[in-house]
Simulated scan of single mutants.
Amino acid sequence: METAVRLAEQYRGGHIENIHFGHVCGVDEHGNIVYSAGDPEWMAYLRSAAKPFQAIPAFVHGTPEAFGLTDKECTIMTASHRAEPYHVEALESMMAKLGLGEEQLICSPSHPLSPAARDEMLLASKPKRRLYHNCSGKHMGILAYSKQKGYPLEGYGESQHPAQVDVLDTIADMADYPKESIRVGIDGCGFPVHALPLNHIARMFLKLACPDLIADEGASRAAGHIGRLMNEHAEMVSAPWFICSILLKDPNIAAKGGAKGIYGFALRDERIAFALKVLDGSEDAWPTIIASILEQIGYRNQETIDRLYALAPKAFRNDGGVIVGENKAVFRLNRNE
């Protein structure tokens, strides 16, 4: 096991204030580790980065068509949404089409993650809702799949539930990793959460971006469909001001992050993918790290890199607009020939 490396640093007044350690792995279409910083086989929980893959069984079996779901409704099955009004509208529409009650979701009632939506709710003294939980689209998708397949709706978040067994099989196949070696915990929303080495997480994202690498025809079609939807409706995956939606605006990229610093993304034309883990769990360092990865490999779309630096500027300002510090990526990718 290799030692973690410094991935990003933040300076204030010329003095270092924050250091983000972690690991990065890049793989090619053959599953070979071609780029690394730190330990490319670090075991990491997927958290919400799993959501596009958790949706695959439903797409394989035609769940969206069975219930007449729109493209935006399908996309929110992959999302860590911010409960913006358009997210809630899609979720309420799905709930009506599925004939479900909000109380059937096991995710906890929450405030919206969108600051504007949260403030509006608080000012109006509106209660928390399960639909506001950023994982509610994933939960709705699993409930829809269970209903279509005739699986019980009760206990849909338990690891032994047949829908969750199907998800675990899908993750193992997408990752090219033995199912019995996948570590299973419980996610914040109540779902099973799976831990795999970073190089196998990167393989999953490469298959999402390049579904021709998937042997099973149904899974290949489903992954291709999911990947297209995430690009075409990027605002449904998180929000226009969050990194996932910003990266997905680039049609060459498949991407999704999860809690506690895990991120995966793939480049379709280049047929390479990366998985990274920030060990302190910070999401703030993601844009700086991913922009540096893209620069180091010579990525051609400067607009995407610029959007990342707009999200986390190299020179950052205080509340008064004064430049007070600097964000730096400080790692170098090792190129493995």
Rank of each mutant, 00 (worst) to 15 (best):
K179M: 14
A234R: 02
L123D: 12
A219H: 01
A285F: 07
H133N: 15
R307E: 14
L123I: 07
A144F: 06
D269A: 12
T75G: 06
M95D: 13
I76P: 06
D173N: 04
K126E: 15
E41C: 02
H233R: 00
A90G: 05
S80C: 10
A291L: 10
T70Y: 06
G224T: 06
H161E: 07
P112L: 10
W241I: 12
F21R: 07
T170H: 02
L311H: 02
Q296H: 05
A239N: 10
P52Q: 04
A202H: 06
P240Y: 13
K260F: 11
Y177A: 07
H61Q: 12
P127S: 01
E89M: 11
K149R: 15
Q296G: 01
V324L: 05
A90Y: 09
P152C: 10
A273T: 03
R317D: 08
L279V: 01
I243W: 11
L168D: 03
D250V: 09
T70P: 07
L113K: 02
L229P: 01
H133T: 05
C244M: 04
E303N: 04
G99I: 12
G261Q: 13
L69Y: 04
L7I: 02
F242Y: 13
D216T: 10
E217T: 13
R332H: 13
S282Q: 10
P52A: 01
K97C: 13
V34H: 02
L206T: 04
R203N: 08
I33R: 00
W286L: 14
L294W: 08
R221F: 06
R203K: 15
P287D: 12
A117E: 10
K149E: 15
A163C: 08
T170N: 06
L294D: 07
Y156G: 07
R300K: 14
D319A: 14
G257T: 11
R307Y: 04
E180T: 10
G261T: 09
L248N: 08
A58M: 08
V34Y: 06
P40A: 07
L153R: 02
Q164P: 00
Y35M: 05
P112G: 03
A4E: 10
K126D: 11
N18M: 01
A312P: 00
Y45E: 08
A202C: 12
V165A: 08
H20I: 01
R82G: 04
I293T: 05
R82P: 00
K126R: 14
A66V: 11
N18W: 01
N318Y: 11
H111T: 03
M1Q: 05
R6C: 04
